[in-house]
Amino acid sequence: MTNSETILRAVHINKSFSDPVHVQVLQDINMSVSRGEFVSITGKSGCGKSTLLYILSTLDTDFTGDLFIDCQPMRGLSEKQLAKVRNEKIGFVFQFHYLLNEFSVLENVMLPALKLNLHTEEEIREHALRKLEILGIKSLADKKANKISGGEKQRVAIARALINNPSIIMCDEPTGNLDKTNSLLVFELFKEITENEGLTLMVVTHDQEFANRTHRIIEMEDGKIL
């Protein structure tokens, strides 16, 4: 770690579901992630990894405790402001590579940038093409998003997560339904991105091998960080 600037900080985060019975899913989570870090979160199924990730990514606001992204407190922000934070600062890659099937691969990558509206459409197109090129799928740019393979979709989702140069990229089991070769490919991509572009990554994974190769492993059990 060359840089100790804190990108994300969670303080005393608690989360419980009361439906159908009261379950405390997260207990007093305290953690922080610095710029340029590649962090993995591991733990048994059902220990609360995804739940934590949804909270850290501001998608889930129903929790107690405090969350800071780029030193900015998330508590008290409106739904619209949170959407802007996600748009600007967070890139998200889901396990099931959610793409918009109505759009082409290129358009899927461009959408968050078009929403951010910092550059002209032409510039955004070029940025998007470059990201696709880095991920080795530039040739798919004009294909419809539902006409490409699972591994390709996952890479498109990563390109989309990268497009706005976010402060942090969060991934929920990005290699969960990929075969060995593809997961290795994705891992190498992540490694490259963090090292070459100075991005911060937080990845939830079951794959111990994958986790071992990251900078830091956060291990969870029963809603607590070990």
Binding site: E79, N87, F92, Y98, L100, L116, R160
Partner: peptide, 8 residues
Amino acid sequence: ILKATGFS
């Protein structure tokens, strides 16, 4: 997806 990527 739209919401996760920043649409309000």
